[in-house]
Design a protein around this nucleic acid. Structure first.
Lengths: 140, 140
DNA sequence: CAAATATAAGACAAATTTGTCTTTAATTAA
DNA sequence: TTAATTAAAGACAAATTTGTCTTATATTTG
């Protein structure tokens, strides 16, 4: 569904968001330990997200990654688009370049349902809801 | 969502199923022309599906690919599993090895909805329904 | 300022996916 | 039986994704 890079990115951002609620910046090592993601690869993904304005970072001692935006305003949709691009939300299920209501592929109608659910999931999930779920998980 | 190999395989099978209804075997060249897929790559995918019993083939003049099963009994689910494996129907949305109701990832509940829709689409689609849609497309 | 710490950047490498090409084997039809 | 035709098999190659490593740059703290 999502690329590895995207999975890692989401997991890392969720960790950073959660730790950030305690008012802390998180170093790449801690992020990756908590998110269970490969360090150098994750660093590259996060650097890209910093360039794209989803995330902030600070070099030097007591530096690390942090988020200045309101967590409720960072939609999962934005994260996925930043890492994997918008194709997953648009692509034809059978990979046809042209596939729409006027010229549908054999799977068009049914696939649209799936894609709409994916879209809904990504639009209604935010770093805030993801962190909430994380906390819930620990409490259970 | 699906790999390229899987997209090509589904499209090729749909073509073979459709032509098969006319009682014809279809050569790899015709399949790929009609499905708009790369020839050698598609051939390899179809050969694999033959080995897995989804499809039949015959060598020699007037040979080609054909389907002996009832089209209504070849579910899209079976095709996807044959080509991409069952992971897409099981995998955690965030790529965690362990993710279930007892130990859910931050996206678990919402992702389950998407995965269930994907599953439903693949269980309720068969080569018969896919061919129907193809025919409909041409009529519109 | 100096030393330590942490991200940034980019070269490099491994693995996987996607795709091609050549040779072989089987089948048919003349 | 022979020639033509078609899939089968597998080596090979390109592209993409995933991942690592080294060096540079920025920042903080003493």
């Amino acid at each position: 569904m999502f690329s590895k890079a995207c999975e890692y990115g989401i997991r890392a951002l969720t960790i950073i968001a959660k730790e950030g609620e305690k008012g802390q910046k998180v170093g790449i090592k801690d992020v990756c330990k908590l998110a269970d993601t490969p360090e150098s690869f994750t660093a590259k993904i996060l650097q890209d997200l910093v360039r794209k304005g989803i995330l902030n970072s600070q070099k030097g001692p007591s530096g690390g990654f942090y988020i200045t935006k309101d967590l409720s305003e960072v939609a999962l949709y934005d994260i996925v688009v930043a890492i994997d691009g918008p194709e997953v939300f648009r692509k034809c299920g059978l990979g046809l370049a042209e596939c729409n209501a006027a010229k549908p592929c054999a799977l068009h109608t049914k696939f649209e349902v799936v894609r709409n659910e994916l879209n809904a999931m990504c639009q209604t999930s935010t770093l805030e809801t993801l962190v909430e779920q994380l906390v819930l998980d620990i409490h259970n």
